[in-house]
Design a protein around this nucleic acid. Sequence first.
DNA 1: ATACCTGTTTCCCG
DNA 2: CCGGGAAACAGGTA
Length: 266
Amino acid sequence: MPELAEVAFACTLWNRGLKKVILAVEVRQSSRVFREINHVQLVESLLKTKLTSSATKGKQMLFRFSGGNWLGLHLGMTGSLAAEKSSYLAQKHDALIIRQAKQALVFRDPRQFGKIRLHQGKDIPSWWSELPIGMLDEKYEIKILKDAVIRHKKRPIKALLLDQRYFHGMGNWMADEVLWRAKIHPGLRCGKISAPKVKVLFKQILFVARGAMQSVGRHGGDPPKGWLFHVRWKDGGKCPQSGKDLRREKIGGRTSCWCPNMQNLN
DNA sequence: ATACCTGTTTCCCG
DNA sequence: CCGGGAAACAGGTA
């Protein structure tokens, strides 16, 4: 379930292995998550090193190991991280297991849309430093939204919100949550959003991103009570605000959920 | 059986 | 060249 905050939380699970030596590395070489790297090289570069730090940016994760070894992870649609007991045995969809004395750090991904990257060298990998600015960054500003809306006039706003260049870390449920709070129909074309609505939209982007990080990002689990999240997939789900029936439809390539009563095309 | 799915990339069209 | 949309990737679940 990996969007911004879930990714941040997943990262903390591996933090249990910080400062600890890697005793063994297991890979399921058939997994598609290794498509961009050599899995033998991955094992060799992590073995006997220490996990020294971790970070997340949007949906991306970066783990640093001693000796100038860097591991990038993306959880795709169904990827997850876990810290298991040291006696843990590999399960069917475990792509990577990093074994330490007291725990096994696991990356599993049934659908294998996730991706592992590797980098060797003293400096932070360029694919990390070149990631777009994040919604939680101090420098994240409304100009990014304004420019994007002008550039993509014909796109439904829902599709724009899922564009990682502008809303790094945004995923399907966050986008629905943002639009619901901003009272904007997901199918509204970007060029039709009024100036005041753009302001509201920006405010809600920050609210949802920050709120998700403070709840899900810190403790895992679900977003706070009252969020659309809790009802958006329920058949017969009602809008937490208006109490009316929610609607679901594919917009911008993804199933979207909205309240027809609160969110209109103006 | 059928139709889903918290994501990204690639391909095709205008 | 750009913007926009659909398909593809793959396995589990309802």
